[in-house]
């Protein structure tokens, strides 16, 4: 059995009076790909942002490699550099070229010399078909290209874990495939990932496990073959029926 990368116990998170996460328990092992599905507002994004310490949690524990990262005095920056996150809206830095976007973390956080960071970035960009975009600025790229650059930017830190937060939701339908194929390649390479997604077909293909979130709880957790064909919870069935009716699966 491979090692546990993430363990979440009894995680609660509220924004003012709105309780978004109401007791999440989840463990993810090395090389595992876990997809979070559920309606908008069910807490998928908030859960990912909590794992990366971008949101302060109210109760519970998050362990990364068996170290509790929610204890006071933990260096959040040290944790974050090992966890890559890719956002729905790409969040590339518009004032920097693609190369500078990708090398910012390695140069300023890992303190790599410029030429080494750039060699590394160039190699990663080439691997994902972006070699000729090195010197472009983000606003000159298509949405699909921007999102692939954002993935490369996260990968450049050589993270142990990748969090993907609905990374195809802001894309035109014809651009979704190129981004998903990048994620497939990462999965094939053994990257541990937690993926919040509305792409059910993709989740079924790529996930080792699928978690259905409803109102801030993980209602159902299992292999995609079971969740998608024989969900036990009525809420899961209802959600999947709606997704099928909407033609998203």
């Amino acid at each position: 059995m491979t090692a546990e990368v993430v363990r979440i116990e009894g995680l609660h998170k509220s924004f003012d009076k709105l309780e978004v996460l109401r007791g999440i328990d989840l463990a993810v092992r090395e090389h595992e790909v876990v997809c979070l599905i559920g309606a908008s507002g069910s807490g998928k994004s908030t859960l990912l942002r909590c794992i990366n310490l971008l949101e302060a949690i109210d109760a519970g524990r998050i362990l990364i490699d068996r170290t509790d990262i929610t204890l006071p005095g933990v260096d959040a920056n040290k944790i974050r550099r090992r966890i890559g996150i890719v956002f729905q809206a790409f969040n590339l830095f518009p004032h920097m070229s693609v190369l500078d976007n990708v090398t910012l973390g390695p140069r300023r956080v890992l303190r790599l010399p410029r030429d080494r960071a750039e060699d590394d970035a160039t190699e990663l960009l080439a691997r994902f078909g972006l070699a000729d975009k090195r010197t472009e600025y983000p606003d000159r790229l298509s949405g699909g290209q921007q999102q692939r650059v954002a993935i490369v930017r996260a990968l450049a830190m050589h993270p142990d874990l990748m969090l993907l937060d609905e990374i195809t939701s802001a894309l035109d339908p014809e651009l979704v495939a190129e981004v998903l194929s990048v994620v497939r390649e990462l999965a094939a390479g053994g990257m541990t990932m937690i993926i919040a997604t509305h792409e059910m077909g993709f989740a079924r293909d790529i996930a080792n496990r699928v978690c259905f979130l409803d109102a801030g709880r993980i209602l159902e957790d299992g292999p995609p073959s079971r969740i998608f064909s024989a969900p036990t919870e009525p809420r899961t069935r209802q959600f999947l029926d709606r997704v099928i009716a909407a033609g998203r699966m």
Binding site: N52, L54, N77, K78, R80, R81, I83, G84, I85, F87, A89, N91, L92, F93, L104, G105, R108, V109, R153, A154, M157
Partner: peptide, 21 residues
């Protein structure tokens, strides 16, 4: 704020996010 969040998620400190992003 998503710009600062993206910078912080790479492990940059608050001061670095301010300075570079």
């Amino acid at each position: 704020p998503s710009q600062a969040a993206a910078a912080r998620s790479l492990g940059l400190t608050q001061a670095q996010a301010l300075r570079y992003v």
